[in-house]
Design a protein around this nucleic acid. Sequence first.
DNA 1: CAGTGGTCTAGACCACATC
DNA 2: ATGTGGTCTAGACCACTGA
Lengths: 260, 260
Amino acid sequence: MTKTDRNDRGEISDAATGDPAEPDGAFKPIYERIREALVFRVLKGEWKPGEMLPTERTLADEYGYSQGTVRKAIMQMVADGIVTRQSGRGTFVASHAGNYKPNSFHPFYRDDGARVSEDTSLYLQCQLVAAEAAVAAGLRLEVGAAVSEIIRLRRSGDRSAVLETIYLPDEICTGAHVIVQRERPSSLYVLLERHYNILVTHVEEQVRARLATDAEAARLEIEAEAPVLEVERRAMTLGDHPVEWRLMVCKTDNFFYLRR
Amino acid sequence: MTKTDRNDRGEISDAATGDPAEPDGAFKPIYERIREALVFRVLKGEWKPGEMLPTERTLADEYGYSQGTVRKAIMQMVADGIVTRQSGRGTFVASHAGNYKPNSFHPFYRDDGARVSEDTSLYLQCQLVAAEAAVAAGLRLEVGAAVSEIIRLRRSGDRSAVLETIYLPDEICTGAHVIVQRERPSSLYVLLERHYNILVTHVEEQVRARLATDAEAARLEIEAEAPVLEVERRAMTLGDHPVEWRLMVCKTDNFFYLRR
DNA sequence: CAGTGGTCTAGACCACATC
DNA sequence: ATGTGGTCTAGACCACTGA
């Protein structure tokens, strides 16, 4: 029973992920090709964030390989944060909803150890603007491209903590400024999942120290010229495309940025 | 051939890791117990950083379980950064020597993208001191315990970048201040491996913004009261014990802290 | 060449969720 | 009771390394 060329059914083939430019004849193991096929199907929206994937056994039958091989593909996706598994229940597309609050997405803490959460945000501004150089570079767009600009203030207890200026490419997240304005979501990434079927899987952040501007100082309730943390974040989707560029300005008289 | 109670040979038992207080009768899978046994043997120094472990097959025979189970234990250790594997060569205890420079241990970059490396350090001071409150808390020691204090300046190109004050508990790293003074190592963690058989597996960092003191400003070649990043690092060993507490002060006119 | 890790199989049994 | 993921086995074959 030679099952060598099982390239007829489903997406098991080289272009499975839709990525161009495969290096060369570097043969990928089967579990890797299955992984790419499954990621592609998640990407297509076949199963939306929070929804359940078929079982290992079903997928094994479907692709014509053994359960162990499919299992390895899925475990990879777990490690990448694309799906989560629950014993006895099933495999689910990851989502920022629920209790999924890894430190990498929420690095700000109060000195007493409490996390500065996102659900106490005060939305100050939502509008469509033309991308300036820094924003365009962060989002891999041309300067002047349309982007939603969202400004919000995160509070902790009764104190201001972080001032955020967020940019979303209008090409991908069309009309996000309107939706955010209307919904004032407690989690921006959940909104991206629900409205655009976009899953943010990882972020990259650059941290610097500088002095607060007058405007920032006023909003953060500190004196002008106080030292603040400036965190520049780029958020990436499953397909490794930037979907968000944001600047977070945090006072650190009572807060800090944690990397664990 | 029932191999149910294979608890005679080797460290396959509950106290394998030397950790106290196992939660309760929570049965651990075999690969987990093998993993703990292997970690324990690494911890004991049976194989030192850079040295090769026995092969999967050998270990499988030794413990009396199948190769796949041992494999799973080892792959866990790879994920934890305890060992590395090279196809065709073997499995080796991880080491900070060589090209092992993960971003988590070296988060400082110059604005042009070059990493601020550790091997351009200027050692300014090495002495034995009594731990102050912050240091003691960071290292889980009593206030006043003996600690090596090491102050060094990291440079990038011809510019000063990061001023570091490092504390190592003398109880674990006896006489480290003398050894560092003599060797002026390019990598502190390699020194810990070589002299104390201690492997730093992960660090936790708190980042804040503040104004430079006069002394810091002088050493970092910036004006007094300039904003700087203050990074407080706690480094942990394999057994999850703190071995180092350091304060890094970084100017960010030309440098930044990266989290990836 | 012999030895290493890496892949894959086809099955068995278990613990846990759900109805 | 059924179906899910989680563990474990005993073997096969492959690709790569190094003497």
